[in-house]
Design a protein around this nucleic acid. Structure first.
Length: 502
RNA sequence: GUCCCCAUCGUCCAGAGGCCUAGGAUCCAGCCCUUUCAAGGCUGAGACACGGGUUCGAAUCCCGUUGGGGACGCCA
């Protein structure tokens, strides 16, 4: 009869310690971000601690660049940590590549406790034995070296072989209560004794991950569903760790649903939607992206899905997370982001679009005082009409260039009487004094000349002016745009379009 | 092949036995507002995978089927 190990932690509230422990390989992925977010939110909600550790145990794939990107990502997202890389803490160091001495000590304790043994079998030998015994190859290792005598070990050593170390896994069912999925049982014998330290002494992930969790006092392991099957191995290692006196409690586990891409497949690292920095370049705010990601498996209320990070923290509980895999929907993510953009204070919004204008070469870096003034004045015109901060250059670009870049569709959409409209407009605008060139005055003058005077529908009347001013069919509100440009520049642009059409 | 997980509108989420003629968001369609586009408002289309139980009563509990996903390394 399966039962939960009584040594499982009962930590709650401020005793909760969670960790985020990525390996520095490749670009930060949105799935990774959601894992970090839920860990962080759980810690913050409960007043517990968030530990940020780096699992750089694979020298071949890890890179310093990737490590820096991870830091950049979390800092941009405002996901902070109480202990870990950069900030230090009582369990430093927090990069596994700097903890080898610790792993050696733990291995010695496990060896002394008799729960780990030396294994000399090579992969080829294991395969050969399986074949000879009519045992399926997928079953893997056959626990051959479990009871090697000292003489046998000496003989292998004499051949120049170095042992790998394997954990003697318990021959009984392993049960735990998943924080998201409830009770889960792995039947006895579903996996063989596994290697924890490679021949040559390099410790493996299957070893260092639980060891660090134990050493760092992690109470709640919240990770991706893809790691769920390895929980059986972790549990068996944990028991060994307790038996060997390395730790005295076993953490609780919660497995978050996968983030899917198109169809039913896991969101690929190659999928552009998965690339955190690409999403940032497109113009996601950290608030919007985090809000959307939180929606993948969780909700704050039945009838609401836009919320602040503070609200998320106040409401979050890992037990409320839905176990279903969720698809990343770019459209909805952008819609949520648009809501967050609209929630921004005007000055904050203006500041946030600056990097995008700079990137497009529309303003200098940093912008001049004059450019700052223009950005601040123009920002309110576009804040509610963009789902992404990256839409700013297209919408506001016309304000920062001397020559209007006419879009093809804008030109071709011009009515036949465009010149007539512009000429009439110029007449109406010329009489407005420089100091009274305001949106309200412009609207009065243009409505009088075009809508009443020429009897045009507003859509027809203002279209040519919009193209003359912005070069586009879609732009910020016309009169306000003209006010920002000023009388002289506005008239110059109207004239320029007429010339351009000749 | 073995083990594990999952199953409500196209998508995401709500629903922990009667409040469900299943609710919200997104997307799509239409209307309103309107100087374009948005935003905003309104309306509409759209789902409990299937089959058995349990129960007076099931989207909700149990079993099975089907479907999907994940894991099975001296990778992480």
């Amino acid at each position: 009869m399966a039962s939960v190990d009584p040594r499982t932690t009962t930590a709650a509230g401020s005793d909760i310690r969670v960790r985020f422990c990525p390996s520095p390989t490749g670009l930060p992925h949105v799935g990774l971000v959601r894992t970090a977010l839920f860990n962080w939110a759980y810690a913050r909600h409960n007043g517990g601690k968030m530990i940020f550790r780096i699992e750089d145990t694979d020298a071949a794939r890890d890179s310093e660049e990737s490590y820096q990107q991870l830091l950049d990502a979390l800092r941009w997202l405002r996901i902070d940590w109480d202990e870990g890389v950069e900030v230090g803490g009582p369990h430093a160091p927090y990069r596994q590549s700097q903890r080898h001495g610790l792993y050696r000590e733990v291995l010695d304790k496990l060896l002394a406790a008799g729960v780990v043994y030396e294994s000399y079998s090579t992969a080829a030998e294991i395969d050969a034995r399986n074949e000879a015994n009519g045992r399926a190859k997928q079953l893997g290792y056959d626990n051959f070296d479990r009871d090697l005598t000292d003489e046998q070990k000496a003989a292998f050593r004499a051949e120049g072989r170095e042992p790998a170390y394997r954990l003697r896994v318990p021959d009984e069912d392993l049960t735990y209560v998943d924080l998201i999925r409830g009770e889960v049982t792995f039947p006895a014998g579903s996996f063989p004794d596994f290697v924890i330290v490679r021949a040559g002494g390099v410790p493996l992930y299957t070893f260092v991950n639980p060891v660090d969790d134990a050493l760092m006092g992690i109470t709640h392991v919240l990770r991706g569903e893809d790691l769920m099957p390895s929980t059986a191995r972790q549990l068996s290692l944990y028991r060994a760790l307790v038996d060997a006196g390395v730790t005295d409690v076993i953490p609780r586990f919660g497995h978050m649903p996968l983030v899917l891409g198109e169809g039913t497949k896991k969101l690929s690292k190659r999928d552009p939607r998965a690339d955190l920095f690409l999403q940032r370049e497109k113009g996601f705010t950290h608030e919007g992206l985090l809000n959307y990601l939180a929606l993948l498996g969780w909700s704050i209320a039945p009838d609401r899905d836009v919320f602040t990070l503070d609200e998320l923290v106040a409401a979050f509980d890992i037990a409320d997370v839905n176990p279903n895999p969720a698809r990343f929907d770019q459209k909805k993510a952008e819609a949520i982001n648009g809501d967050h953009i609209r929630m921004l204070q005007p000055a904050d919004f203006a500041a946030r679009i600056v990097p995008y204008l700079v990137a497009r070469g529309l303003v200098s870096n940093p912008p001049t005082d004059e450019q700052h003034r223009l950005i601040a004045a123009a920002a309110p015109l576009v804040q509610e009409r963009m789902p992404l901060l990256g839409d700013a250059p297209d919408l506001l670009g016309f304000l920062f260039v001397d020559d209007v870049d006419y879009q093809e569709d804008a030109l071709s959409g011009l009515p036949d009487n465009a010149d007539e409209v512009i000429v009439a407009s110029v007449g109406a605008l010329e009489v407005i004094p420089e100091g009274e060139f305001t949106a309200a005055a412009l609207q009065d003058a243009l409505a009088g000349a075009l809508v009443e005077g020429l009897g045009l529908k507003p859509r027809v009347a203002y279209g040519p002016l919009r193209v003359a001013v912005s070069g586009r069919k879609v732009s910020p509100p016309l009169f306000e745009s003209m006010e920002l440009l000023g009388k002289a520049e506005t008239l110059r642009r109207l004239d320029a379009l007429v010339r351009h059409r000749r």
